[in-house]
Each structure stands twice: as structure tokens, then as C-alpha cells.
Design a protein around this nucleic acid. Structure first.
Lengths: 131, 131
DNA sequence: TTTGACATTATCACCCATGTGAAGGTTTGA
DNA sequence: TCAAACCTTCACATGGGTGATAATGTCAAA
């Protein structure tokens, strides 16, 4: 498919799709006329890229990780690369840390919201105002 | 305490501490000589700022959220602000989404790492090489 | 009490990452 | 033929820092 269709199907502006290509995250083939030709699988790939960027993973890392993020559990690896392994372990652990921090703070936010609602309800019930 | 000590105790360069002040995240008082004077509680606060920034939360949002992130469960709110509530709910939900994405991808990474190790072990066991 | 090392101050400018806007040119397809 | 889709390229925006300079403050040893 061409860039416009991919853009429509992923919700990602064409401008950004070209940018991701520049960053080495996707590598569409070219038609004779110079137009980019995107394979079907790139729809999911682009969505995954957006998710990861939204979660704060930089493009450089995404580029290294993408080939390892297929959801199949029966991945077969021909030549295990120790350097790649180290990078993946590092990223996995960083992700775990982020998850911990986010959970912690989300829960704190949630408690605060509940407290706000409690206060609101108390006001509505005619409790003595603390303003 | 002065900026150098806070820097030592948090591991955050003085340059950054001044930057966070500029961004409105911390507001140390000043001594007569112009030096910044940091209260003890800012040690935790600066650590929390670092955590949140590392997790991809922008300073603007951190500034709004910080007062709501105390870990005490018995927070009392005098005048519940609906706008603030909306912002907090939005951020809480964004955090939940991020957590989901990060968990998903961390698990995928983890599976890949396990697969690599399995491949490595097979090689060591003298399995037929696929190189 | 002065000297010298070290901490702090402010300010200006610069870097990288992630986008975004706009100009100017080519290709497609009704 | 003409609009819409595509192409490249250059430039700008924002966020989060970082480096360098020059001036002042502190403190201890000579």
C-alpha cells in the first residue's frame, strides 16, 4: 500500500511515517515512480512503534528491539548474539523499573482522586465546610 | 542544605536542580548571600521528580501532580477543584495505558531472551548448528 | 589578613530527540 | 487538464538537558 493508506489505517500522519523511515524504524520498498510501497505487516509495526514512543522508549532502542517483539512464543534463534542479549536484558529491566514507578504513582494519584470525591460528597451532604 | 549537598544526596547534578527550579518543580528559599536553601523534604521530592521524568512524564504534568503524590492515604482536601480532578484522572489513565504497553513488551522481550538462552544452550550441548 | 581552592550565582548559548510546516516539483487518475 | 497524492529538502518548535564564562561567597592555611 502507499503512504496515504498506511497513514489512514494507523492514524499516523504521513509526515511521521517518513520520519520513522529516516530514523531507521521502517524500510518500505520503492515503486518505479519513487513512491513508497508498504507491506501489510507494517500496519501493526507502525502501531507498535507509536505505542513504544508514547511509553517513552527512544527510537534508537525501538529499532534494536523491534525484531524481538513478535508475540510468537516459539521464536527460533540461529546465532545468539551476546551483545544483543545484554541490550535486551537492560531494556527489559528498565521497563520493569518504569512499570514499578508508574504503578506506584498511579495508585497515589488514584488515592488522591478518591479523597477529592470523598470531600466533594461531604460538601454535598452538608458537612461543615473547611474552606 | 545548599545545592551541592542536595546534589550529592540525590545524585542529580546542580545544573539540573537549577533547571528544575526554572521549570517550577522546586522552589528553594534563598539565604542572605543569594545561595539557595533546600529543605530536607526536597531530597525525596527531587528523587520523585527524577523517577517521573525517567518514566516519561513531562515537567509540566509533574508540576501539577506533585502536590497530589504524597503517600499518605488520609489526605484531606478542603476545596475539591473539578479541573484538577479531570487532569489527574486523565494522567492516571494514561499511566495505566503505559503500564499495559510496557508490560506487554517487557514480556515479549523476556520471551525472546529465554529463546536466545535456549538456543545458546543447544549449541553448547552439541546440537546441529544452524549457522 | 591575605591568598587560594572550592561552592555558588546568573546568563548565554548549544545539543539531541521528536516532531511539524512549508515550498517547489513529479505522478496519478478521474 | 487539474486536483490530489506523492516526492525531497530546508527550516523551525518544543522538551530536557549540558557547557562555558565571569562574578561573587566561604573557609582554612600561611
Amino acid at each position: 500500500m502507499r503512504i496515504g493508506e498506511l497513514s489512514r489505517r494507523t492514524g499516523v500522519p504521513t509526515r511521521m511515517l517518513r520520519y520513522y523511515e529516516e530514523q531507521g524504524l521502517i524500510a518500505p520498498r520503492r515503486r518505479e515512480n519513487g513512491y513508497r510501497e508498504y507491506g501489510e505487516y507494517l500496519v501493526d509495526r507502525v502501531r507498535k512503534i507509536r505505542e513504544l514512543l508514547d511509553s517513552g522508549i527512544p527510537t534508537r532502542i525501538i529499532g534494536d528491539m523491534l525484531p524481538c517483539l513478535d508475540d510468537t512464543s516459539d521464536t527460533v534463534i540461529a546465532e545468539p548474539d551476546p551483545e544483543l542479549r545484554a541490550l535486551l536484558v537492560e531494556q527489559r529491566d528498565k521497563m520493569s523499573e518504569r512499570i514499578t514507578v508508574l504503578e506506584h504513582n498511579r495508585d497515589a494519584l488514584d488515592r488522591y482522586i478518591v479523597a477529592m470525591d470523598r470531600a466533594e460528597r461531604d460538601v454535598a451532604d452538608g458537612a461543615v465546610s473547611t474552606v
